[in-house]
Design a binder for these strands. Structure first.
Lengths: 342, 342
DNA sequence: CTGTTAGCGCGTTCAT
DNA sequence: ATGAACGCGCTAACAG
């Protein structure tokens, strides 16, 4: 009986096998496919596993089986409220699965996004989940070469990227702008940050709708590459009002920006919603409880994460991707930062 | 010359080696330690690498080298503003390093924390970073068994857990409470959520300080296990005021709770800071720009992440851990939600 | 500076 | 239901 363990390393499958008096593969099976091992052996093996504190080596498992049981999620920026709900949804679905999940930041940067995607791919992940995306072409290339399923949550219309779960951000923006128009706001600026494919779609909805009314003014578009945040919302509103004092409403492409815009309005003594309207996007958790509560576009992000994870799991389990795209819709939440419609 | 490539798999090191007419190890070296390969060979090899689009297999690399070049970070909840700064700091330090980072949620749950730590360990990470922690004993056990360096950012006094970068949360809380007392608030409630080791330390500082003044009342302590959030802050303030209408200030263990508490105060017509004081914790990005701006305790979280990553890198590179703990201090930011001191 | 040999720990395949 | 042999792709250790 070969006993290697030259160095005081951690317990391996072989150690467990030796101690239990069976072969390595039987231990492996007892752990992964309990049904294929007799009850007697299984019990004996599990006992040794518990005693020795054996933990499978994922690197070895990944190398041998061609997938490491980990779902990798590429997120524009993990620390944001909008993403939080998606993550909750994903983990809810992965609960009680033998899959695990890990995240990485893409930082809304095409280059970092690419490198991270490559890093993921090089680890034999069970699958990849993408929320957001910068460069469509790069993503397509990498995804086509991937040997694991990929599901993304960018925009329902980007089916070129493979399976997608999400909403139509262009239409959602159109509805939001319609609402602001219905409230009789006329000089509507748009504030966006962390520009990615989704943000671009929202901008398009804004432009198209205002053009229809002959109210589109490219000067009122402010798009910054940096990450969205409350302080940035303050700054953007301030700059907007200083260069265009006649603006009477802002469509903020994220609720953080909207909250920042609101604080700044308050500071400047502007009356919201009477003289100035604010519409956010996402309906993150503080939107409904702010004072005044924030008018915003609700995107079902929890469901998005859940469904995306669900689709991914099905594909991991060999199911053919039935739906190439699932539209979860959106909902305009009319609250306190826009005045009553006429 | 052995040409396997039976299946249409991806390019391997051997493929590159064959094409370049060298051995596998030389390609490996050309990629990892360029200096040890002659310039001529290196150029030839890198050319083939580029042509074939070769990407290293991290699972194989991890198995062979006993570490996969990935720093794993265990975070209580990745989607929170407080964590955002830490993450920025970490990634700033890891920038231009050949290390990469990935995150996982511990969900402020001892069991999940343990499982995730095991999962990390089983992947041969280059190192582990922990922000927050639930169960000291479990963590100690796992960390002692780890064969990679571990640095945590829980509380400066928890040196039992190994290398630590952070602040003294107990003292910070004492200073905050002192400030509230100086502002002549007397019935000070404490609102906390997502209770973990750090939150417990803050609670201790609160208790000790009020006990000294004979003002401690356990009824005014509200600690919830669920995650901190703005809506939760609203709810906790509401419940506090309903059961103890005489409370005249709250110490919120996170700024989200403080913002929620403020919104609720505004809704209830309470005057902040004249009749009611609010002090937050962390000084997340919205604190300074809120209207009124939020009095809070600033923890240097960006530096924390940066220094923690720095220490980890040093240990990965074989340096002995010189400092076992680095105290980054804290700072009370007196702003608009507490009235002037007497 | 470069190559050879020998695994890393596990799962797959094919026997039994 | 269990096991033997082999290989996954790469790097450490040692040679030359």
């Amino acid at each position: 009986m070969r006993q290697k363990r030259i160095r005081g390393e951690r317990t391996t499958l072989l150690d467990v096998a030796n101690k239990a008096g069976v072969s390595a593969i039987t231990v492996s099976r007892a752990l992964r496919e309990p049904d294929r091992v007799s009850e007697e052996l299984r019990e004996r093996i599990l006992k040794v596993v518990a005693e020795t504190g054996y933990v499978p080596d994922f690197a070895a498992r990944a190398l041998a089986s061609r997938h490491n049981g980990i779902v990798c999620a590429l997120i524009p920026e993990v620390s944001s409220l909008a993403v939080m709900n998606i993550i909750h949804g994903i983990e809810a679905r992965l609960q009680d699965t033998d899959l695990r999940i890990q995240y990485a930041n893409a930082w809304r940067d095409a280059d970092k996004e690419k490198r991270q995607l490559e890093l993921f791919l090089s680890q034999h992940p069970a699958g990849i989940l993408m929320a957001g995306g910068q460069n469509q072409q790069i993503i397509v290339d990498l995804i086509l070469g991937a040997k694991c399923p990929v599901v993304h949550m960018i925009d329902i219309n980007l089916t070129a990227l493979g399976t997608v779960v999400g909403s139509d951000h262009c239409t959602a923006a159109k509805v939001a702008i319609r609402h602001l128009l219905d409230c009789r706001y006329r000089r509507i600026a748009i504030l966006g940050a962390g520009v990615d494919l989704r943000v671009q779609r929202r901008l398009e909805g804004y432009r198209v709708t205002l053009e229809e009314e002959g109210l589109y003014d490219p000067q009122l578009v402010m798009m910054l590459p940096e990450a969205t945040s409350v302080p940035l919302g303050c700054r953007m509103l301030r700059e907007t009002m200083e260069s265009h004092p006649d603006v009477d409403a802002v469509f903020c492409l994220n609720d953080d920006l909207a909250l920042g815009a609101y604080f700044e309005c308050k500071r400047r003594g502007m009356r919201v919603p009477e003289d100035f309207g604010i519409c956010g996007y996402n309906d993150v958790n503080f939107a409904a409880v702010a004072e005044p509560p924030l008018t915003t576009v609700r995107i079902p992000r929890y469901d998005m994460g859940y469904r995306a994870a669900d689709l991914l799991i099905r594909q991991i389990n060999g199911e053919k991707a039935a739906h190439q795209s699932i539209d979860l819709g959106f909902q305009l939440m009319v609250r306190g930062t826009t005045r009553d419609t006429a």
